[in-house]
């Protein structure tokens, strides 16, 4: 949305960069007046500040970037629920407008700090985006909860043809320790990419997936170098988790296998 002269003037109350191009902001009470004015004026005022963002972050749009981030932190105060709702809904709405990818990336990074369950569908739509999939994944992981988790389950199959999207989805499902996804994840243990195989092994370990034990131990036997160190580490994590879950026999099986597979000079017992 094109900014009015009034909004431009308000944003321009932000101090200029100093002679070295560095930020020398005004104290919070002074800055908060700008944020409160924008939040009190409502969504259109915030949209106008978003409309001032430029494609390249080279300082040209330093003031609107600074104001938007200040708004996010200001509205992030625990007691500012109403303002936070307005802000996150507005940022989500702007994400669906026709902005360049770099501006949408900036908005996603702000939603990582102020989004909640209601923001999840809009953010989730970027999980297969060519440029902003990582920012979307990081925002959803920060928001957490079942709604965010659900966003990663669905794209797993769709992402299979794109390694970068698949990698990010696998890692997120591992972070969520999402056991119901284990079966879908497990098939990637034999992926052609070593990076994908390692991400899969870690995700399955995080899910405490008992059915992954043979697959992980096979990877231990069939890898070397960095990959082997990693898979041993993930196998230990799986052993821990299985012990915590009371599956001591499986945990012992992992330990015994690692003992037997240990090579000269390797730091595993």
């Amino acid at each position: 949305m094109k900014p009015t002269a009034e909004i431009i003037a308000l944003v321009n109350e932000t101090p200029d960069l100093d002679e070295y191009g560095k930020v020398d902001g005004a104290p919070w009470p002074e800055s908060a007046k700008i944020y409160d004015t924008l939040l009190n004026q409502g969504a259109d005022s915030i949209r106008q500040v978003v409309g001032m963002l430029q494609v390249i972050d080279d300082g040209t749009d330093y003031k609107p970037r600074y104001v938007i981030h200040g708004l996010v932190m200001h509205a992030g105060k625990p007691e500012k629920q109403v303002q936070r709702k307005l802000l996150r809904e507005t940022l989500c709405s702007e994400l669906q407008e026709d902005y360049p990818a770099s501006i949408k990336g900036y908005l996603l990074r702000q939603l990582q700090l102020c989004g909640n369950d209601s923001s999840v569908p809009v953010i989730g739509a970027f999980l297969l985006d060519e440029e902003n999939w990582e920012y979307a994944a990081q925002a959803l992981q920060a928001i957490g909860g079942d709604a965010s988790l659900g966003q990663f389950r669905a794209p797993l199959a769709k992402a299979a043809s794109s390694e970068k999207h698949l990698l990010t989805a696998l890692q997120a499902l591992g972070s969520f320790q999402d056991a119901p996804s284990a079966a879908a994840v497990r098939k990637h243990l034999s992926h052609k990419s070593e990076t994908i195989r390692l991400a899969t092994a870690w995700a399955l370990a995080m899910m405490a997936d008992a059915e992954a034990v043979p697959g992980l131990l096979k990877l231990v036997d069939n890898t070397s170098g960095w990959a082997r160190l990693q898979v041993v580490d993930f196998s230990l994590t799986l052993a821990y988790k299985l012990t915590v879950a009371g599956k001591n026999a499986l945990s012992s099986k992992i330990r015994d296998h690692l003992d037997a597979a240990q090579k000269e000079g390797e730091p595993i017992s």
Binding site: M73, G76, K77, P78, Q112, L113, C114, E134, A137, Q138, Q141, A142, L167, T168, L170, Q171, A172, G174, S175, T195, L198, A199, W202, M206, D233, T237
Partner: peptide, 21 residues
């Protein structure tokens, strides 16, 4: 009691990098 501040305690990492546990 501050969800936003807590999101700075453990921000997600970019794949394939992650904490081990």
């Amino acid at each position: 009691g501050d969800e936003q501040a807590n999101r700075l305690v453990n921000p997600p990492m970019r794949a394939p990098w992650h904490l081990p546990f």
